[in-house]
């Protein structure tokens, strides 16, 4: 089903370079192994057997920012952590994306106080926000899917 029916056994697929690159970027997107708080536990659960993010090519969590394409900010970011987070983001190689996982990373969540950064978009540009405290693993996968859609549509020029 799909493209091979239309093309019979020609063995040739025509597409644009942009969509091929976009497709390739989504199929092996390596998230950074970077947990902050409660959401990190749900992120681990999303990696484990029940939810299994490797179905989407997302199973390889890299502890090194140099090797990762995606930063999942999983949890509340304190004022002390903020410079570290920015530093890690700066160390990631382009093209790079950020998911703000959970209410705290998105907007501060229940913690409207002196210690917590009110939304991680104060520090780094965020592509996808996921609501929930903490979001279920399904919600994280949903967010990742939304990011994949976004990445597939990107022009090469946009991310260079």
């Amino acid at each position: 089903m799909g493209v091979e029916e239309k093309l019979a056994d020609m063995g040739v697929v025509t597409t644009t370079l942009e969509s091929a690159v976009g497709w390739g970027r989504t199929r092996a997107m390596w998230p950074m192994l970077f947990g902050l708080a409660c959401c990190a536990i749900e992120m681990m659960a999303a990696q484990a057997a029940d939810y299994d993010m490797s179905r989407f090519g997302m199973e390889l969590m890299r502890p090194s920012p140099r090797q990762s394409d995606l930063m999942i900010v999983a949890g509340r970011v304190s004022r002390k952590m903020a410079p570290v987070l920015r530093h890690l983001y700066d160390q990631m190689a382009e093209p790079k994306w950020v998911i703000a996982m959970g209410d705290c990373a998105s907007c501060g969540g229940v913690f409207n106080n002196y210690a917590v950064v009110q939304g991680v978009d104060e520090i780094v540009p965020v592509d996808i926000y996921i609501s929930g405290c903490p979001p279920r693993p399904e919600a994280l996968i949903g967010g990742v899917m939304a990011l994949h859609e976004k990445v597939e549509k990107l022009k090469i020029r946009d991310v260079l």
């Binding site: 902050l36 708080a37 949890g75 509340r76 304190s78 004022r79 002390k80 952590m81 570290v84 229940v110 913690f111 409207n112 106080n113 002196y114 210690a115 917590v116």
Partner: peptide, 9 residues
């Protein structure tokens, strides 16, 4: 690094 100010809140 994860000080959240829970007690104050």
């Amino acid at each position: 690094f994860l000080h959240t100010g829970i007690e104050k809140n």
